[in-house]
Design a binder for these strands. Structure first.
Length: 491
RNA sequence: GGUCGUGUGGCCGAGCGGUUAGGCAGAGGUCUGCAAAACCUUGUACAGCGGUUCAAAUCCGCUCGCGACCUCCA
């Protein structure tokens, strides 16, 4: 089973033909969220990107095990918090148990993912549920001489490791620069004095007395370090070496670089064949990020409740917005961009509703097979969803023109077109028709009003028909007239 | 300072040496009692300078602008 699928591998910075290690199985690991806050637009990008990858690999016939973790421990705060766990900090603020915070935001995250129509991963392991695996991995790294214990904490020995392995290959770091320190801006980080070298990173941190989240270990009561969870969990569920590891570009260093070091340092093998990284979503040209405080949560998009939002946006508009850019490009947030995406999405969905009602002709004026090929070519070229969408828009034009009689399609081609549109729009890109809230009472009342208006129009009583329309518009209803009658929707 | 990336028409955004990207907005048209919506058609571009080439938005060099990472971050 071979496909001409090419993916950009961050290791080589080139597009490489994707060949799984054990076809037809594919192991896919994606860094999941740290559940101490609401998911924002920036989070939507990797999960949509790798959802599309998951969907496409599955479509091609691979059996994908998609693992995406929930980070519910670790991740030190900056110096202002003196090493306090992010989750513990939030818990203190809200007077909740840490695991209560975790549950709250995990649930919220799942709901956002569901709305964005991201298929759930095959396994969604929690870091807190894999403390033992992380400890075991740290033991191996120590035994191999690549880590040392210091005052109850354990640090990865980057210098010693780099003698046998190349540290910095993925991110293009030069070990000497890391040792020298990163420019004059480098801050004094908590725990630096325990390290043998500034480039070393923590595998296990001894918990300070006020630190709530803590687990026993051979070295201290404490918590796992910054990067070990992903190494432990990906190894457990996907094996020592697996196919694809994805995440945001901001994780390239130090997170993913450290993952490689930890895996090689424990079992001697490089953990990942293809590293994939999505680019950032920016706002006013700057990265949207939690620490910068310039983020807009997905929930705020859905409700429109944010000062930068001119309106609410449904989840499919957001998905479409993200799919219209290539995943390796930055994508700048703007209301105009989102509105454009929403309209484009609606246009495609409207054409899909028209498609079944087309009348077949004896001949076709459009090459449906060519459309299919173009869409596959675009997907195979490093998941170029923007190009796929442009081809779908070509199909939209043809569908509408066929309806108007200026293009022709045979019955066979109409069916083929349906199949292509369903495959790419729904199965692969993961779009779906927006859920309509049904309300029978409202339906009946509206039907009555619109019937009265239609009657008024039939009697040339335009004063009445226009009044009904204008008053409904004031109440935020949209009235659309067509040959088949009037329809309505609520804004 | 180091590493990497980027600069496309009013806006967003593809493009990886030669042929229309696409969407939104704008313009014209169809439909409509009038609108709205919808649909059809359609103009405008490659930061600047130099180089390579028969041919460059696309390759190379320089200049300018912007960004990411180097500390938790998707």
């Amino acid at each position: 089973m071979e496909h001409p699928l090419f993916l950009t591998n961050s290791l080589s910075r080139q597009k490489e033909n994707f060949v799984p290690i054990n076809p037809p199985l594919v192991g896919l690991y994606v860094c999941g969220p740290t559940v101490y806050g609401e998911a924002h637009l920036g989070h939507a990008r990797p999960y949509i990107t790798f959802d599309v990858l998951n969907r496409y690999l599955t479509h091609l016939g691979y059996k994908v095990r998609y693992v995406r973790n929930i980070t519910d421990v670790g991740h030190l705060e900056n110096d202002a918090d003196e090493g306090e766990d992010k989750i513990a900090k939030k818990a203190r603020l809200e007077q909740l148990e840490p695991m209560e915070v975790v549950e709250l935001y995990t649930g919220s995250f799942h709901e956002s993912m569901r709305q964005l129509n991201n298929n759930p991963p095959s396994i969604e392991p929690r870091a807190s549920g894999h403390i033992i695996e992380q400890i075991e991995m740290i033991k191996k790294i120590i035994a191999n001489g690549y880590a040392y214990e210091s005052n109850g904490s354990v640090y990865f020995d980057v210098i010693n490791y780099s003698k046998a392995h190349d540290y910095g290959k993925l991110s293009g770091r030069v070990i000497e620069d890391l040792i020298a320190g990163a420019g004059n801006e480098r801050r004094e980080l908590e725990g630096q004095s325990e390290k043998r070298n500034p480039a070393d990173f923590a595998l296990w941190k001894k918990a300070s007395p006020e630190h709530i989240m803590r687990w026993p270990s051979p070295w201290s009561d404490g918590f796992p370090g910054w990067h070990i969870e992903c190494s432990a969990m990906s190894g457990k569920y996907l094996g020592e070496t697996f196919d694809i590891h994805g995440g945001g570009m901001d994780l390239l260093f130090p997170h993913h670089e450290s993952e490689i070091a930890q895996s090689k340092g424990s079992c001697g093998k490089a953990p990942v064949k293809y590293w994939m990284h999505n680019n950032m979503i920016t706002i006013n040209g700057q990265k949207m990020g939690k620490s910068l405080g310039n983020f807009i949560t997905l929930r705020q998009f859905f409700t429109g409740n944010h000062k930068l939002l001119e309106q609410s946006y449904n989840a499919m508009a957001i998905r479409f917005f993200i799919l219209q850019a290539h995943y390796r490009s930055t994508l700048d947030f703007s209301n105009d961009g989102l509105i454009a995406a929403e309209k484009g999405y609606n246009r495609i969905m409207a054409a899909l509703e028209v498609l079944p009602s087309l009348e077949a002709s004896d001949t076709s004026t459009f090459d449906v097979n060519e459309l299919s090929k173009k869409c596959y070519d675009a997907m195979n070229d490093d998941l170029n969803t923007a190009i796929v969408l442009s081809h779908l828009f070509d199909a939209v034009r043809v569908i509408n023109s066929a309806k108007a009689g200026t293009e022709k399609l045979t019955a066979v081609d109409i069916n083929a077109l349906k199949a292509i549109m369903n495959t790419f729009a729904f199965d692969i890109l993961g779009l779906h028709a927006e859920e309509k809230k049904s309300d029978d009472d409202l339906d009946n009342v509206m039907r009555l009003l619109l019937t009265m208006r239609t009657d008024a129009k039939a009697n040339k009583d335009f004063a009445t028909s226009d009044k009904i329309r204008d008053e409904l518009i004031k109440l935020n209803f949209t009235i659309k007239d067509s040959k088949d009658g009037s329809s309505w929707s609520k804004m």
